[in-house]
């Protein structure tokens, strides 16, 4: 009698833990940021792939000059650059998939990509391409 009750309790407990596990996993999937990555390319070649969730500051060595990339609080931007037009700095902050910063003189691009752990969340925030 005593043994049986314990076994029943165990099953309930395990079921409870499993259910909790599923709920946690679902929450992680649903509410985590998109696993976005910041992709840095120079002259078309991928040089760095950085998580958007980890604050970073780095110097990108482009063609004939450099650009300082900052990633902070889920946003990426070029803080400083020695290119003639400075358009990459003027572009401001990007955070949504499909957005990019371009430094034409240095042939540097910084783009938000869905990342290797990308999921299927589809909303107006998921942009395939920007016309403009």
């Amino acid at each position: 009698m005593e043994k049986k009750r314990t076994a029943k309790g165990d099953i309930l407990l395990i079921a409870g833990i499993a259910a909790a596990g599923i709920i946690i996993a679902a929450a992680v999937l649903l509410f985590s940021p998109h696993g976005s990555e910041v992709v840095v390319r120079v002259d078309g070649t991928e040089k760095h792939r950085l998580p958007l969730t980890v604050d970073t500051r780095m110097v990108i060595n482009g063609r004939g000059g450099s650009n300082t990339l900052v990633i902070s609080s889920g946003e990426a931007w070029i803080e400083d650059a020695d290119c003639p037009d400075g358009l990459c700095i003027k572009t401001g902050r990007i955070s949504r998939r499909g957005q990019s910063i371009i430094c034409l003189p240095h042939r540097v691009t910084v783009e938000i990509d869905e990342g290797s752990g990308g999921n299927n969340h589809s909303s107006s925030a998921d942009i395939d391409v920007v016309a403009g």
Partner: peptide, 21 residues
């Protein structure tokens, strides 16, 4: 889009063409 849907193409906002639509 390979997902079977249409492509989602953002139209740039002239005031902030790279970050606003």
């Amino acid at each position: 889009n390979p997902s079977g849907k249409d492509f989602n193409c953002a139209v740039a906002d002239p005031a902030a063409p790279h970050s606003s639509y």
